[in-house]
Structure formats: C-alpha cells, structure tokens
Computed example of a mutant assay.
Amino acid sequence: MTPVDLFARADGLRAGRTPFVLATVVRAERPTSAKPGYRAIVLPDGTIEGFVGGACAESTVRLQSLAVLRTGRSTLLRVTPAADGQPAAEGMVVVDNPCLSGGTLDIFLEAVVPTPLVHVFGDTPIARALVDVGSAAGYAVTLSTDPAAPIPPDATAVVVASHGHDEAPVVRAAVHAEVPYVALVASRTRAPAALAEAELPADLAARVRSPAGLDLGARTPGDVALSVLAELVQVRAAAARETPVPTRRDGDAAGEAVAPGPRRQLPVVDPATAVDPVCGMSVAVTPTGLQLEHAGRTWYFCATGCRTAFAGDPARYGG
C-alpha cells in the first residue's frame, strides 16, 4: 500500500467513524526491515494494512495497537530484542521481542477515534443552538425531528429538546441503548411529568438528566445549550475517573451525587493475549492472528516461523 493509498484509506475510516491506529516508524536501529517513515493502519479486528516491520514486529504492533484503541491514548512503542529491564520513559511502552534480528524499532501509535457524537432531537431554538454550540466545541452533532429515527450506535449523548413533542419514545430509546449521557430539556415543573410519560423503571429514569444542563442561570437558547454541553463535559470526565457526578439543581445547593453513565466501549476487539509457545512472546488473540489447532487447543504465534517450528515438533514446545 503506497503512502497515498494509506492516507486515502485513513480518510475513509474517519468518514465512516471507524476507530483505527496509525502506526508510524520514527526510529529504526539496524538491522531492521522497516525504516523511519514507514506506516501502517491497524483496524479494530487486528488487521494491519501497510508495513512497519517483519512478522514479529507486526505481532507486537497489533497487540499494542488494540490496547491503544481501548484507551484512546496514543503512545510510543519501542520493540527491541535487548530490553535492559529498566522502567520505560514516560509515554513509552517497551516490549522485549526476542524474534527481532538485532535491531530496535520506535513506532508511534496514534489512536484515531471518532469525535464524540451528540444526537439532538427537536425542532426548537434550543435544539438548533445545541447543534451550533456543540459543533463549535468540536463534537459531531446530529439533529433529528423523527421520533422513530434510530439512535446512532456510537452516540456519546442524546439531548431531547422538543419542548413536549414526542419526547417519551426518544428518551426510552436512548436509555435502553445505554447512551452514557441522556438529557431532557424541560423546566423543573414539567420535568417529572415528562419523565413519567417515558414509563421507565426507577433505576433507568434516574439516568435521565432533567432539567438538562448545569444550573448556570441560563436564559437564552445559546446559554441553555452551553449549560447542557458543560454538564456533558462533567459527566464524561467523571466516567473516565469512574467517580460520581455532583448535581446542582437549585442555585448553590448541592444535590445527591449521581453515578456516571455506562462507558460505551469502542467497537474494538478485546486485546486478549496468548503466549507463543516457541519464542515466548505475547501475541494478540484475534481472527487475523496466526494460529494452529493441536490436541484440542488453539495455539497462537507471532510469525510463520514459530508456527512451522511448533507444527514440526509440538511436544518440544509443550504441545
């Protein structure tokens, strides 16, 4: 895959809101087959498109990239056959790879994850202000006036701002889809009745934030939109820390703490690992990984050489 093809592929993945890792070789200590500037894309199922090293290096890049996709945090990976056991520098992961032919690779793993998506329902000034303010804040925002429209599968937030029109079905759909932040724009007087119409069990109804937003004394549609997005920022930060979110609904009086909403996972293969029985490397257990069935068990390998060695004499490697 040429650099142009690789970047076109990356653009297509971004447009389709598919998470991936862009792996770039930034340093190569000979002898290595990859050189600085070589790149590859690692997809959520572990597929690697491009080239950042031989089979053993590729296996390590796959495993570490899947871990990066889980956290969304980019990192610098050092793959070396001569790790000295010293703690890695901050921001770096060092993997001792005995399969390498003597060289060392430093590979930057850039997590490219979709922009958080906010789904707004309603045809009101506040709904339109949420689109404007949310977009300016860097969120991907969708606006719908159809109560039967499906909730986007990767929505971070759903805000119902229809002022009493078709609120219940959208609130129910968002809660049952386990969207992390669900908010209903309603006055303190109307909010309880509006939530009751959704006919949700008490534990699920408690997840809906209404009145929506932090109590900032908002009056204009733009101010209300700002208060809702401020609360969304607070909820997302609390979910990352797994701490309760303090609620403030009446001036400066603190309400009860609310547990953060469910953490919607990225659609990424869980980076389960196995140990290559030949070289001892940790490898990712993915559909695209090298494997072999023997004695009623699936064995995983970093490269074809290890798989061939195992197949020739399984007993020598514990098979």
Rank of each mutant, 00 (worst) to 15 (best):
R9M: 11
V42Y: 07
V25F: 10
E256P: 03
V171S: 00
R219Y: 13
P98M: 05
A67V: 00
L200M: 13
V170N: 01
E242G: 12
L63K: 04
L109G: 08
R62Q: 12
E197T: 12
G164E: 01
A272F: 07
A212G: 15
E110T: 09
V283M: 07
V158R: 05
R219N: 12
E197Q: 15
A205M: 07
F310S: 00
E110I: 06
L76M: 06
G46C: 07
V94D: 02
V120E: 06
G16H: 15
P244V: 10
H163A: 10
V235F: 05
D123S: 08
V160Q: 04
D252C: 03
L229A: 09
G255V: 13
D96E: 13
I48L: 09
G53K: 01
R219G: 11
S135L: 11
V258C: 00
E178P: 04
I48K: 02
L43I: 05
M1K: 11
A57P: 04
G12C: 14
L130A: 12
T308F: 07
T145E: 13
A23H: 00
W299E: 04
F51Y: 15
A274Q: 05
P169V: 00
L13C: 14
A239R: 13
P246D: 06
Y181C: 00
P116Y: 04
A240P: 09
V275H: 01
V94A: 09
D96P: 11
Q234D: 08
V21D: 01
G312K: 15
P153N: 09
T104L: 06
A173I: 03
A212N: 14
Q64D: 01
V269T: 13
G261Q: 06
L76A: 09
A230T: 11
G296Y: 09
T75F: 03
V170R: 04
C56V: 01
E29T: 14
L214D: 01
T142C: 14
P81V: 06
H119D: 13
L100I: 11
V118K: 00
P153W: 07
L77S: 07
R263S: 12
E58A: 13
G318K: 03
V278Q: 03
V171P: 03
P44C: 09
